[in-house]
């Protein structure tokens, strides 16, 4: 799966000293991808080595409809964005979340 690289401008804007809200998995580089993965790990009870950009929340991590709603809420909170319901439905994988958030923050 190919995906557009996160624009450098968005990255630098996001690379803050914000303390991670989830203490379990420390991330050294707070890129969108790392932050998304961290949320997915904390919410779905998995570890970073077990997920990739292709990982599907429902098919690979066993998420149900309520779990995906909760994940989207966490993305909204972490990146301070609003994700409308019609967009949220399309965010089914880690990669889709990274792409969507990257575009949203441009």
């Amino acid at each position: 799966m190919s995906r557009p690289a996160t624009p450098a401008s968005a990255r630098s804007a996001l690379r803050s000293d914000k303390t991670p809200r989830y203490g379990e998995y420390e991330v050294s580089d707070s890129s969108i991808e790392d932050r998304v993965k961290k949320i997915v790990c904390d919410q779905m009870g998995t570890t970073p080595d077990k997920i990739s950009l292709e990982t599907s929340f429902i098919n690979d991590l066993g998420a149900d409809s309520l779990d995906t709603v909760e994940l989207v809420m966490e993305f909204e909170d972490e990146f301070e964005i609003n994700i409308p319901d019609e967009d949220a439905e399309k965010i089914q994988t880690v990669g889709a979340a990274v792409d969507y958030i990257g575009a949203k923050l441009q």
Binding site: L66, V69, E70, M73, E76, D77
Partner: peptide, 10 residues
């Protein structure tokens, strides 16, 4: 503390 939109779907 975080508002109605943050109440868990669970």
């Amino acid at each position: 503390e975080r508002g109605a939109r943050r109440v868990s779907p669970h």
